[in-house]
Simulated assay, not measured.
Amino acid sequence: MSVVLISILTLVGLGVASALVLYMASKKFQVFEDPRIDQVEEVLPKSNCGGCGFPGCRAFAEALVKADDISDLKCPVGGSATMTKVSEILGKAVADVKPQLAVVRCNGSCEHRPKLNIYDGAMSCTVAAALYGGETGCSYGCLGCGDCVVACKFDAMYMDEATGLPVVIEENCVACGKCVEACPKNIIELRNVGPKSRRIFVSCVNKDKGAVAKKACAVACIGCSKCFKVCPHEAITMADNLAYIDDDKCKLCRKCVEECPTFSIHELNFPPRKKKVEEEAIVEA
């Protein structure tokens, strides 16, 4: 038998032996994957935005399948419709997911919040926040560099050149929370969409005392508590010289809006108010 033939047979034998070893190893160490993971992933929006708290839709699907209780897990992009499909696949109860949108809790435009200095550094809110309090007297407000806009994957935000503030495009927002995470000043919040997309919130996060806050920004919350006193639904709390409206308790009566002396409480998507008749009865001369 020639040397070449022996070499070929040896190599063939080694190949077969190696294949058998690998086959047995794959069977022994085979990891079983629940087929429901693929089914759940299929009904998820595949946006991989991370709004669910997991790195992607696949990871979220795995967590849903493995969890005994999924009532605390939600997909902000797919909302209740998607979670209902997940419930049907897994036979597990899911909580009702209230649709939410991002709101910007700062109204300190250039008109209301004059600049005291000019920032000349990297155009990043994170960098600017690490260096100093900002260009104005309010160290709590928007820095205007647009980190939130960059973080948004759904083209749901843009920077308004006139005000220097971010604006939310409601029809594009999926409440993934990426803009919330990106803002170092914590001025962006996810709030319930509300009936007919109507919302009321305090557009300020300034915790300074009233006089200091008002000097820095004309539309700052001054902690006067007038809104707190007039709210009939106990939806407003006062803490650190700042009012906050709980959107789960708010009944959208708008009494707080009328009471606010600095117009820091915003009402969105409401019809125009009817003009009050100055005198209900006119006394004829």
Rank of each mutant, 00 (worst) to 15 (best):
F270I: 06
A175E: 05
S80D: 15
R36P: 04
V277D: 07
E189K: 14
A213L: 05
K46C: 04
G210D: 01
I187T: 01
A281P: 01
K92D: 07
S71M: 12
H233T: 09
E279Y: 02
L116N: 12
L20R: 09
M83E: 02
P114H: 09
Y244M: 12
G146D: 05
L11S: 12
V283E: 11
F263A: 14
G177Q: 04
V103A: 08
E111N: 10
P184L: 04
K196F: 09
D160I: 03
K85Q: 15
K178A: 14
L165T: 06
D160A: 05
G210I: 02
G137N: 00
E135P: 01
L131E: 11
V219Q: 12
G79R: 07
C224R: 03
K85L: 14
V257G: 00
C176W: 01
V97T: 12
A213R: 02
D120V: 15
D34P: 04
P35T: 07
A61S: 11
D38G: 04
E171S: 12
V104G: 06
F201S: 10
M157I: 08
V149P: 07
R191G: 00
K209Y: 06
C231K: 01
V104L: 03
Q30R: 15
P45L: 07
A213E: 02
V212W: 00
C52A: 02
C253L: 00
F32G: 03
K207L: 07
G144Q: 08
C176E: 00
G51L: 10
A285N: 10
N172Y: 05
K85D: 12
L252E: 03
S47M: 14
C221F: 02
L131S: 11
D208N: 14
L101M: 09
A235W: 03
A130H: 11
Q30A: 13
M83K: 05
K92Q: 06
L5D: 10
D38Y: 08
K274A: 12
A216Y: 00
R254Q: 13
Q100S: 11
K46M: 11
V3A: 14
G141Q: 01
K215L: 12
A182K: 05
P166Y: 02
V219C: 08
F270K: 06
P272E: 13
V277S: 08
Y244I: 09
A122T: 15
E41A: 10
C173D: 03
L90P: 02
G146L: 05
V21G: 02
D96Y: 14
K92H: 08
S203N: 11
E41Q: 09
G121V: 03
T82L: 01
G91P: 07
